[in-house]
Nucleic acid binder design. Sequence first.
DNA 1: AGTATAAGTTAACAGTGTTAGCTAAAAGAG
DNA 2: CTCTTTTAGCTAACACTGTTAACTTATACT
Lengths: 198, 198
Amino acid sequence: MIVKNDRQKQKELTKNAILKVAEEIVLQEGWQAVSIRKIAEAIGYSLPVVYNHFENKDAIQEEFVKNGFNMLAMAMQSTKEKYPEPEQQLTQMALTYYDFAFSNSAYYKMMFGLGIPSCQKANEIAEIGNFSAIIIEVISELMGETDKQRKFLKFHTLWSILHGLTSINMVNLTAAPDEMQQQILLDAIHGFIKNINN
Amino acid sequence: MIVKNDRQKQKELTKNAILKVAEEIVLQEGWQAVSIRKIAEAIGYSLPVVYNHFENKDAIQEEFVKNGFNMLAMAMQSTKEKYPEPEQQLTQMALTYYDFAFSNSAYYKMMFGLGIPSCQKANEIAEIGNFSAIIIEVISELMGETDKQRKFLKFHTLWSILHGLTSINMVNLTAAPDEMQQQILLDAIHGFIKNINN
DNA sequence: AGTATAAGTTAACAGTGTTAGCTAAAAGAG
DNA sequence: CTCTTTTAGCTAACACTGTTAACTTATACT
């Protein structure tokens, strides 16, 4: 029925409204500042209405994690298409990764916060699979062999390097100067590519 | 006075008691399960007494971060002393790092949680300096030159690799099989050492 | 028009970090 | 040994948090 569609449409609308207002708070004050009450007030409904669209607060966070991985995957895919050579692609994609993390640090923190609630379910998030696939594709072109497991291993190594650099700078543990950071990243990627067939 | 010493002694005693009970909760249920009320009840005092020893909850967490870095530094130093060759030392120290992170994951999460509260003050924590020094020492021996900045750069790269591997496995994002993980780590360290003079 | 279903409400439960204000005990001075 | 000052500790409260039960109102269907 048309009426039923209207209902569903309305439901999606308020669901989007919830995510939108949540994002505003996340970007301005971080995830810890998001509360169900703030969301409810902002969308003009009473508190329990939020629970009609999300089972709990963690479910909202999960949406941000998925969204974040999609954004990251799109950014890297777009960078990849700008360069012809795999080596160049990978290097530039690494810079894109780093850039994404700091331009969208609120998202990045939610995606990788070690206290992530859905820790067990993290490997079930499809969006991460898409992200992985994009990188593995480039790695494949750089590697002579085609052993799936070795490609996955190399992907895992690369991702670790990227995330490690990013997160250590993010918590500002070493306070490396700004101009040094890109150098470190390029140094690490260079080493990775040089060693990709070992 | 002796009396004054007794007072101070008592104060330190309850401060240690607070940290001890906090650690118990952290190890069993994680940091998010720690509450000031639980601590107060466990040490047999009323709630505000905790605030006589720590300015706020974040101050307690900071203690864990410091402690964690000391434990990690000691473990790596101890491993280092077991091997004569720098290359061997670095490889084994990497394994120790990884092992520490998963044997003391509650500590590790507090040390590196991206939502770390004292984010700005993180570079002021002296314990991190000690930890850095131990690794930089080994790197120095592996590097021909002695440019301080380049050594720091290499240290930063290595730490990023270690932390990246660790934390990505910790949030279980890729679900790499267990036997693969050590291989990845060794692969990455091998690449790092091979490239250390580039 | 009357009934079943869904939407939205208020109010409460069980927590959280943090602080103001009071009381009881110990320390220092006369 | 008493009196005053300092300190230790307490109760109670504030302003929040996520989550849920129970009730009301409005919509849809027979």
